[in-house]
């Protein structure tokens, strides 16, 4: 595996976009993460492998500068990039509504990977928003795994759908001279 230099630079920029997106969602107090816009953008432009690595690196870098806990969720970020890339290859990022549905689909495997990390490593809590939803579900009698899974899945579906839509809008507005060297992007052209 060797990415060309342009792809590497795109991936590095995407890591920055991920983190800035996360910060903006945070200071707008939105109930979304928006920390995978770059990952999905790379997945659309350069494929599943590049997308997956972008996600992985995002969480490692996040761990280095802001919050080491993020590093524990690196596998989740990886899955988001890979699955989005596979969907892009299948032509599921051609239109805005396809992108939105693809985002919602991405939420499922990413939640499946996240739940065991949350439950077994963190005892079912993350110190963040979904804890409240999980606590409610627990209070009404769900098991811990179910509570964590449902609370995270709900937020994830909304988050990834919006994220994928934003990534699609960005990708479709990129100038041709920028995208023409990303051959993989042909899968997402109408």
């Amino acid at each position: 595996m060797k990415f060309d230099t342009r792809t590497l630079i795109l991936m590095a920029a995407a890591v920055v976009i991920n983190i800035i997106g996360g910060q903006i969602a945070h200071f707008l107090k939105l109930p979304l993460y928006l920390d995978s816009i770059g990952t999905i953008l790379v997945a659309i432009l350069a494929g599943p492998l590049a997308g997956g690595i972008t996600g992985l690196v995002t969480n490692l870098v996040w761990g280095l500068i802001l919050n080491p806990v993020a590093a524990a969720f690196a596998p989740v970020a990886l899955v988001i990039g890979v699955v989005a890339g596979l969907l892009a290859r299948a032509g599921w990022f051609r239109t805005w509504w396809q992108a939105t549905i693809s985002g919602a689909i991405v939420a499922v495997p990413s939640t499946i990977v996240a739940v065991p990390i949350i439950v077994y490593m963190f005892g079912g809590v993350t110190g963040g928003g979904p804890d409240f939803a999980a606590a409610y579900l627990l209070a009404v009698g769900q098991s811990l795994v179910q509570s964590v899974a449902f609370s995270n899945l709900g937020i994830n579906i909304a988050d990834k759908a919006v994220t994928a839509l934003i990534a699609w809008i960005v990708a479709s507005r990129l100038p041709l001279r920028l995208t023409s060297n990303f051959g993989f992007f042909e899968h997402s052209r109408v």
Binding site: F3, T5, A12, A13, V15, V16, I20, I53, T58, V61
Partner: peptide, 13 residues
């Protein structure tokens, strides 16, 4: 390339 991928975001953030 691996070094670049980690260093560049750290600098640009």
């Amino acid at each position: 390339g691996v070094g670049y991928l980690v260093a560049s975001p750290l600098l640009l953030i």
